[in-house]
């Protein structure tokens, strides 16, 4: 079995299984915890929990006016690499073929040049995030091994993917195999590290929206 066969076969299959089961385990064990019942009387005219939850999610997409430029830089940079990752993952033709194999649905891809630009921008943005993490005293203090490892595990697929598409550094098959293996590593790490925030963000923002919403506060 070649490295590419291994990557495409058992590696990615095991990784997908770990990802799916791991995420389910995390979510079920979280949602299965006791939910504190709020017995306080909702403010008259306060939105329903559902609508407060949705607006809580939307409101936290951006920082309110009046917060500093540091916040704004980190926020914009965060959007750049999140959107970059989404464009690469959902827009690249090869990825769409892979997703079609899994889910049976597909959509038109973006030109490879666009994907390459997105990948370069995403890499730059990830590096900027790392530099901020390593240089800001606040960020250095609050950063843990989980943060650095997650950064690495997120950056590697972008870097190896870009190398594979550009045929740089090794044979294409080898580069592709390495790329797929880095994706497998990301999937395996996903449920155990902070990548879970991709799911948790819906819970926490909505719950805070509900918490403040019933008080009649819009934050």
């Amino acid at each position: 079995m070649s490295l590419l066969d291994f990557a495409r076969g058992p590696a990615i299959e095991v990784a997908l299984a770990v990802f799916t089961l791991g995420v389910m385990w995390r979510l079920i064990s979280l949602l299965g915890l006791p939910w504190a019942k709020d017995r306080t009387v909702r403010r008259a005219g306060a939105p329903s929990d559902f609508s407060a939850g949705v607006s809580g999610f939307i409101r936290h997409l951006w920082v309110p006016k009046g917060f500093g430029m540091t916040s704004r830089f980190a926020l914009i940079n965060g959007y750049v690499f999140h959107l970059g990752l989404a464009i690469i993952f959902f827009g690249f033709v090869q990825h769409i073929l892979f997703l079609r194999g899994l889910f049976g649905v597909s959509w038109p891809g973006l030109p490879t040049s666009v994907i390459s630009i997105a990948a370069v921008v995403t890499l730059g943005s990830l590096v900027a995030a790392l530099v901020r993490r390593m240089t800001s005293p606040v960020m250095r203090l609050i950063s843990t091994a989980n943060d650095y490892f997650t950064w690495l595990i997120t950056t590697l697929p972008v870097l190896t993917g870009l190398l594979a598409v550009s045929h740089l550094g090794a044979r294409y098959e080898t580069l592709l195999a390495i790329h797929i293996l880095t994706v497998a590593a990301l999937l395996i790490w996903f449920p155990f590290g902070k990548l879970m925030h991709a799911f948790l963000v819906f819970l926490t923002r909505a719950e805070t929206g509900v918490f403040y919403g019933r008080r009649g506060v819009k934050i």
Binding site: L30, L31, L33, P34, W35, A36, M139, I142, S143, T144, D147, K194, M196, H197, L200, V201, L203, T204, E207, F211
Partner: peptide
């Protein structure tokens, strides 16, 4: 649930 979600969700 909400407290544990909060603790698990912080991305530092």
């Amino acid at each position: 649930e909400h407290l544990v979600s909060y603790l698990e969700a912080c991305v530092h």
